[in-house]
Write a protein that binds this DNA or RNA. Sequence first.
DNA 1: GTCTATAACGTGATAGAC
DNA 2: GTCTATCACGTTATAGAC
Lengths: 201, 201
Amino acid sequence: MTTAAGTEEKIKAAAREIFLKKGFAATRTRDIAEHADINIALLNYYFRSKEKLFQQIMMETLSTFFGSLLQIFMDRESALQTKFEQCASQYIDLIKQQPDIPMFILSELRAQPEAFVQSIAGNARLKDLVIYEQIVAEMDEHQQKAFDPVHIMINVMSLTLFPFVARPMLQTIGAVNPSEFDDLMEKRKQLIPQWIMEMLK
Amino acid sequence: MTTAAGTEEKIKAAAREIFLKKGFAATRTRDIAEHADINIALLNYYFRSKEKLFQQIMMETLSTFFGSLLQIFMDRESALQTKFEQCASQYIDLIKQQPDIPMFILSELRAQPEAFVQSIAGNARLKDLVIYEQIVAEMDEHQQKAFDPVHIMINVMSLTLFPFVARPMLQTIGAVNPSEFDDLMEKRKQLIPQWIMEMLK
DNA sequence: GTCTATAACGTGATAGAC
DNA sequence: GTCTATCACGTTATAGAC
């Protein structure tokens, strides 16, 4: 019952790093074990199987990814533009620290269509969010009803997350070089809210 | 030497479908063979190895994906807004037919950082494109120099491609339901160019 | 709890008959 | 060209000693 100093967490840290980088199928338990300075037997002792370990990592990652966002979206006090600013700023900071998160979630969610549905949703549907009401109100005020408000939500996510997801491609086609990518994203913290507000007018 | 009626193409079609859906690591040659109604031996007879087959699929996919785009971007006759319209329209049509293309390219490009560099780039760097010049000119005209023109290129791609990439996630969080997704993307053919032009003012 | 050794299995690839 | 049968290997998972 007595767990050696942080062994379990050490394994999880290694698993997180490798799963996030290579995805479930391309990851070998050997790599995780080696990276955590233990052996495969111990990995299975703690987590029973590669699959179980993966699910745990996935759940925690989803929680990190959606958790902070949900608070912003449900705040009844803050103005709409403030929400967009917080959202862009917070996401860009989070993903700078763990750049593989978006790609990981998107690609593993594609592979396992239904496995994680209840862990994400279950609670809130998009149209129940405070931010969604605010978008609708803002569009009404400008007699702007030319399109579905869902586009706005999609755009916030697109403009924020896509650059991280597409980073290898963007570098390959020479759109950005590695050193200036961070500055570019820093600047987008300010630009994205502006662009989005403009779309509502 | 005599190839049986379309066997090679039949295998490639099956490989394309499965590789695009599951990626290299998660795909088994057995699945491809079964799907093509042949056996593994024949697959290796034609393509020597899983890796070789994959590379062929990848090259063709990259060519499909970037080929048509490059023509639009290099056209000296068409106006900037026209380019954005063509780009959004053409891409959305293309990806509607093969919805897995963007995710496939992005995730496999991450896995194989340098393998396909020369096949994509080699020819044109972003800043040599006609469209890039036009964006710079348009921003000058509006005394709009508040940000790097590269943001605009990134935004076109983000707004167009991200919804496809994030489709499983968007459905999971109840942002869109499967039946209305196509309509949403159809509408974006018109919206994206408008949004982008607005950003330049 | 942690290790070594090994079992059990799945996968990519080939040999050889037709 | 296409098949069946099989090999060779890598991987996950477990048994059992410490």
